[in-house]
Simulated scan of single mutants.
Amino acid sequence: MSAASDSPPALVLVAAAVVIERGRVLLTQRKVGAHLAGAWEFPGGKVEADEDPRDALVRELREEIGVEARVGDIVEVTYHRYPTRPVLLLFYEASFAEGSPAPAALDVAAVRWAELHELRDELFPPADVAVLAKVRARLAGAWSDQRVEPA
């Protein structure tokens, strides 16, 4: 068996939100100095050890953009191997809880609502590209303005 330093990097589990309102999807921009700085992505973040991915997503949305969220069903699951680590991403339908503040850039470079024509693959991290086709289809009318029902 190889030494610990020779073992492959641990898989990183990430939960991300697909929030669609009024024909637009919510995006955040990665901060300067972060891996893939400047890229636009679906808001969310790393799931901690022993944390439920849905709870992690609610926590990350609160920390990064100051919103209270409701998490719905899985939209997409993707796996991507970056040069330094493999990542498994769980993309969930999400909406804002009643009374939630508007999203603000608390721990991200920027927050914005993007329309269908603004969702270009090259603006996103490679791991997010797989879900873009589904989001584009939903923005084109198949899923627009649907809300996640409270649990």
Rank of each mutant, 00 (worst) to 15 (best):
A10Q: 14
L57I: 03
V67R: 10
R22Q: 13
V67P: 10
E51G: 02
A49Y: 09
I20T: 11
L13K: 11
G23Q: 08
L11Q: 12
E64K: 14
V19S: 03
R30C: 08
E60T: 10
A17N: 05
G38A: 06
R59A: 03
A16D: 06
R54A: 07
G33P: 09
R30L: 12
V58L: 02
D50Q: 02
P9N: 09
Q29R: 09
S7W: 15
G33Y: 02
E64M: 10
R59C: 02
E21A: 11
R59G: 07
L11F: 12
A49M: 06
W40C: 03
G23I: 06
E51I: 05
L26C: 06
A37V: 01
H35Y: 10
L13Y: 12
A37D: 07
R70W: 13
P8H: 13
R59Y: 08
G45F: 00
A17W: 03
V14W: 01
R54F: 04
R24V: 10
V71W: 13
G44M: 03
R24W: 05
V32S: 10
V25A: 03
R62Y: 10
P43M: 05
A10R: 15
V71F: 10
D52Y: 07
D73I: 12
D55I: 05
R62I: 04
W40T: 00
E48F: 10
D6A: 15
L27A: 07
S7D: 12
V25P: 03
L57D: 01
V47A: 00
D73K: 15
V18C: 11
R70S: 11
E41A: 06
D6G: 14
G44N: 00
V12Q: 13
Q29H: 04
E51H: 00
P9T: 10
S5H: 15
P9F: 14
K46A: 06
E41Y: 00
A39L: 07
E63D: 11
T28I: 04
E41V: 00
R70H: 14
I65D: 06
S7K: 13
V25T: 09
L61R: 07
V71P: 11
P9L: 14
V19Y: 03
A49T: 04
L13D: 14
V58Q: 05
V19A: 00
A56W: 02
A3G: 13
E21D: 13
V19T: 08
A4S: 15
R70N: 12
R24G: 08
V32L: 03
R62T: 10
L11C: 12
A49H: 07
P53V: 09
A3S: 15
A69L: 09
V47Y: 01
G66W: 09
R70T: 14
L36C: 04
A69C: 12
R30W: 06
E60L: 06
V25C: 09
